[in-house]
Amino acid sequence: MSLVKFRSRYFSLDDILSSQERVPCLFNTNVSFLGVGELTKKYANLPESYIKRMMDQAEWKTPRGFPQYLRREIVRKNKYFGLNRPWTGAFQMENARGRYHPKVFVEPIKDWTIFKGDRVEILVGDDKGKQGIVSRLIQERNWVFVEGLNCKLKVMGKTKTFPGTVFRAEQPLLVTTEVALVDPSDLQSTKIEWRYNEEGEKVRVSARTGRIIPVPQQADETYDYKSKATYRESTKDTNEKELTKITFSPKIKTFEMDIMDSMGIKEERIPCKTYWY
């Protein structure tokens, strides 16, 4: 029905309806937003609408709420996912107007297997055969960063008189072919399978030894807390006792009727006959 989904330089022809009501659900679907990985969203611990809002910085937009303007905007359709998190300013800079990047091919993966805090073996490069801990993930590119391994020397702050500071920067590795998970029972790399245990939970099982490889605690880490238990409540948070208290009791009343009863408001006027059309 509408072209709004494509969010390109096209504008939707049902903009002509701008003076009339619209179906709100049509505007909530956004193709460009599908680019963000689930693990990234989990780490962010931010509302989806906020991530969307930060990512979709419109290049140009007509003012909203005026009948003389059609609903048009120019938004970059295909976002480039690099080292930066989608809700940061650096991401916006990377996707700014006039910035172009080579096309990226990302292998589709059905079940993500390697998480933050996992011990992995590197299969390529200078550090081939070495084992390390996964420190960072970028799901949009199938990338993992292994702590202190697969590094590149970089020079920062070089001037005519100063040679600059040299530092080691971890380089991304492809999760599909360049790293392998290490089986904790014999500390050797294996392929893994997802299976269900007796409790019905999905677990990672080493294909070689058949041992369960538990998902590390660090995988639950978000920007706000290391683990749910260590989260520090802020002053405006509702505490758990208040949150879980059940105060609801079913009544044959609408919300408004219940509130009026509790506030002692009595309404005895009879409304006149009306027509809905």
């Binding site: 029905m1 049902d14 309806l17 009501e21 619209r22 009306t274 027509y275 809905w276």
Partner: peptide, 27 residues
């Protein structure tokens, strides 16, 4: 008890969700 509505063609012949409103006079 929700606000009624229906899919109707507009002046261009394209369907859209028309939200009905309350009137004192019949249509």
């Amino acid at each position: 008890g929700e606000r009624p509505g229906r899919l109707t063609p507009n002046a261009l012949g394209m369907n859209y969700w028309y939200k009905a409103s309350e009137h004192v006079v019949p249509p």
